[in-house]
Deep mutational scan, measured.
Amino acid sequence: MLDDRARMEAAKKEKVEQILAEFQLQEEDLKKVMRRMQKEMDRGLRLETHEEASVKMLPTYVRSTPEGSEVGDFLSLDLGGTNFRVMLVKVGEGEEGQWSVKTKHQMYSIPEDAMTGTAEMLFDYISECISDFLDKHQMKHKKLPLGFTFSFPVRHEDIDKGILLNWTKGFKASGAEGNNVVGLLRDAIKRRGDFEMDVVAMVNDTVATMISCYYEDHQCEVGMIVGTGCNACYMEEMQNVELVEGDEGRMCVNTEWGAFGDSGELDEFLLEYDRLVDESSANPGQQLYEKLIGGKYMGELVRLVLLRLVDENLLFHGEASEQLRTRGAFETRFVSQVESDTGDRKQIYNILSTLGLRPSTTDCDIVRRACESVSTRAAHMCSAGLAGVINRMRESRSEDVMRITVGVDGSVYKLHPSFKERFHASVRRLTPSCEITFIESEEGSGRGAALVSAVACKKACMLGQ
């Protein structure tokens, strides 16, 4: 009897593995994704193909990295998701002549009506938060230079001027797309009239992360975010950046690689679950690469896999709870928690219980395998993109072996128990001629924006502006 049951459990697990095998990517698959990513990057950089390229390769006008001589107080704003952060950054000489960066910050959550109302409502709310922060720190009387981390696709015309191309991540505030974001912020500050600010720089969160990590390690020339969304930036040779005049030196390019796949480059790798996630998203047909990796989508992918296993009578005796059938019910943090389970399955059992399920031991094991399959594919897909960037940098610099540091931020990278190990191992397999160091950014977005502002202020002083 026991043997029969054991055989049935083994057969069930084997069927589960057959279904989950769809998520496995072979090294040849990853090399294919990497080569296609490089081709799209090239198209994004070139003037004649930029418009139709899915990977936009947006110039950021960040050319210099901090040298350690900029000092002063800077205000930093960070808008990239449902939370908005205001930070005071003091850049100065530390002990023994070292450079020191001290920060104080406060988080504000953005109400739904500000995210989806008008641009005026959104930026009025942001300036209200700045006003509140300055009151708390008794700094209303000071006109501070301000660095703005704005983590949406922007076409820069200068370091302090950028046109919002399109909202992502659930934002829909009308009247912002096609307009200068810094102008919208300046107008809102003017409307309030109770404080003055000098907006000197606007950067993407990947750029802010790279600059913040450069402060720790001067070989950091790539910034990457794996959180709600997924994106990367890197220092490109100016001669390859056709959208900006000049051939000397390097400029940081914001790849906006989340949109890779929007022209069909990933079609052969998309599964039924991916198509369902895409169809029910706020932007169907867009940001397809990001939807395979980002935390906004990972939990939902797992939920759809679990429903398939229920329908195949391989999980929960073929019956799903009402909660499990509800879109968004299986949160991405559950994926991390399930994979963090120590082996007694308590954590998995508790999560499934909150979803109205009474799982068996085998159910718990199957749910864990589903989570591992989805998150491992995410790590491997992400590795193909980064390997594409790094191999490109090595080739354009004609280096036999390139040493490089990548600064990384984002909740999936930082909080998932195995993502970074799987990701690092896969990147290294795909970049055999590179020695890569990964560092995690601390308060990256805010500190990085302030350091970019410090560079901009120093330049302005040198130019006598």
Rank of each mutant, 00 (worst) to 15 (best):
R403K: 10
M393P: 04
R394L: 08
T361D: 08
D73T: 02
R392W: 08
M34R: 05
T362F: 07
N231M: 07
K143A: 05
G295M: 11
G170E: 12
E442L: 12
E435I: 13
Y297A: 14
E440Y: 11
L134N: 06
L307G: 03
V101H: 07
H156S: 13
V55I: 08
E290T: 10
A370T: 08
A378C: 11
D198A: 02
T168V: 12
R377V: 00
S64N: 13
V16G: 09
E196T: 07
G117L: 09
E435S: 13
Y108V: 04
A259W: 12
D274F: 08
V222N: 01
D132K: 08
V181G: 07
S353I: 02
G318S: 13
G318D: 10
S336F: 14
L301Q: 06
L2S: 11
T431S: 09
F150K: 14
S69V: 15
I159D: 07
N83E: 08
E290V: 12
L276A: 12
N204P: 11
G92Q: 05
E216M: 02
P66A: 10
G227I: 00
D113V: 08
K90M: 03
I436N: 10
L352Q: 01
V335C: 08
R46T: 15
T361C: 03
M235E: 01
S109W: 10
R308W: 01
G295E: 15
F171C: 11
I436Y: 10
A208F: 09
A460T: 12
D135S: 14
A329E: 15
P111S: 13
G80V: 10
V203G: 01
A232S: 07
Y349F: 03
V154D: 11
A384I: 14
G178C: 14
I225V: 03
N83V: 04
T118I: 14
F133D: 01
V62S: 02
G170Q: 15
K172S: 05
I189L: 09
L357E: 06
L288T: 15
E442Y: 14
G97F: 11
L2R: 07
E440S: 13
E157D: 15
G444C: 10
N166R: 12
G147S: 10
A460Q: 08
D409I: 05
E196M: 05
F195P: 14
S212Q: 01
D29G: 13
C129S: 07
H137W: 03
N391P: 02
V277S: 08
I439G: 06
N180V: 08
G170V: 13
T342N: 03
T431P: 01
K172C: 06
I366F: 06
E440C: 12
T437V: 12
G117A: 14
R358W: 02
M87N: 10
M235G: 00
P417W: 11
P284E: 14
F438E: 02
V277A: 09
S281K: 13
E245C: 03
G295W: 14
S426K: 12
S76D: 03
A173N: 05
E268M: 05
K12G: 12
K414A: 09
K102D: 05
C457T: 13
R36G: 04
E290I: 06
T405R: 05
Q26F: 04
T149R: 14
A114Y: 15
G162V: 11
W99M: 03
G147Y: 00
S280L: 11
Q239F: 04
Y349V: 03
F123P: 10
G193A: 07
S411Q: 14
K31L: 07
L451G: 14
Q106G: 05
K136L: 07
Q287F: 15
L185T: 04
E442D: 09
I211E: 00
R422P: 15
D205F: 06
L25E: 15
Q38N: 03
Q323D: 07
E440L: 11
K12N: 11
S109C: 04
L134E: 03
I189V: 04
T82Y: 04
E399G: 05
G318E: 03
R327A: 14
R63V: 00
P153V: 10
A119Q: 10
Q98E: 13
D278S: 12
L451E: 13
T342L: 02
E421H: 14
G44S: 05
I366D: 03
S411H: 11
L352N: 03
T118H: 13
D365G: 02
Q286D: 11
A450Y: 15
E51V: 13
P111K: 13
L430I: 07
V182I: 13
R303M: 01
M462T: 05
G178Y: 15
E242A: 01
A21S: 15
G249A: 01
A320N: 07
A454K: 14
R46F: 12
K190W: 10
M462G: 12
L324F: 12
S441E: 03
L144K: 04
E440R: 06
L134M: 10
K140I: 03
F123G: 06
H380E: 15
E221T: 11
F74L: 04
C457N: 11
D42F: 09
T118K: 12
L75Y: 00
C233F: 00
A188G: 04
K140E: 07
D409G: 09
F150S: 13
N254Y: 05
C371F: 02
E157R: 12
M34V: 05
V33S: 01
V253F: 04
T437R: 11
V310S: 10
I436E: 04
D187I: 06
R85S: 10
G388A: 14
T332G: 12
S151T: 09
D409M: 14
L276Q: 14
V203W: 00
E322P: 08
G170F: 11
K169M: 14
V427L: 10
N179W: 12
M381N: 04
G464K: 11
G183C: 09
K414D: 15
D365K: 01
G446R: 13
R275K: 14
